[in-house]
Amino acid sequence: MKPILEVKSMTMDFGGLRAIDNVDLSIEKGQIVALIGPNGAGKTTFFNCITGIYTPTHGDIYISPNGSEDGKNERINGLKPNIVTRKGLARTFQNIRLFTSMTVLENVMIGCHAITKAGIMGAIFRGASTKSEEKLIVEKSYLILEKIGLSKYVDELAVNLPYGAQRRLEIARALATDPFLLLLDEPAAGMNPQETMELDELILKIRNSEGISILLIEHDMKLVMSLSEKIYVVDYGKKIAEGTPEEIRHNPVVIKAYLGEEVDA
């Protein structure tokens, strides 16, 4: 098996600041991988580099969507974010970025943008193909909301949702783009224990039923330890450890980086 995402010695500089320093990472098909580290370690920047918001200063990012040995390897650094999304990498944002003036359903419908085609003429004449495409978008969005457990909010404006539901909506929206890899940036931030537990189940469900691989940035150690098969630890932009939850839990370097923070929860 080839990794579906392979990052090779990636570096990202902001002027004199090296936010990511020569980091390698790889994800196998169907894996849940966590990226952890103290605040300011460069985790979000790592996501931004992969998804095309920034172009890394050095290094390579390869994807191989179906993970098979003969599948082709594609280098994606420097591609625009919308193109990266079309290639099958979807993400959520640490600071929630929903479309606030739109309804919950419309937020998910926007997620279908990448996989649909209707243009201006299609919109104006609304021919058979546009109509069926619209129907498909609505149907798909409804089903996703149902799966994520947001059905009761369909016609609400996204801003009016409770915080936990907004985080889930970000996931729903990302799923609508039909990704093979889902990048979650602190999905449990601000959630209460009950919501976090539901999130845990949801992430597992997404992986198990759709075979979507997941790269997770999270501070909630309980969630990270229970979900992930592999954990990468970064500090000051450098990878300081990599391994199974068991290995990470007992790694002295990691414990030192977190200095007093509870690692084995």
């Binding site: 974010p81 999304t85 979807a90 929903l98 606030t100 926007i110 943008h113 990448a114 783009t177």
Partner: peptide
């Protein structure tokens, strides 16, 4: 509403 999120949705 949000340019960055829109691009991340493939727009």
């Amino acid at each position: 509403d949000d340019e960055i999120a829109s691009q991340a949705m493939g727009i």
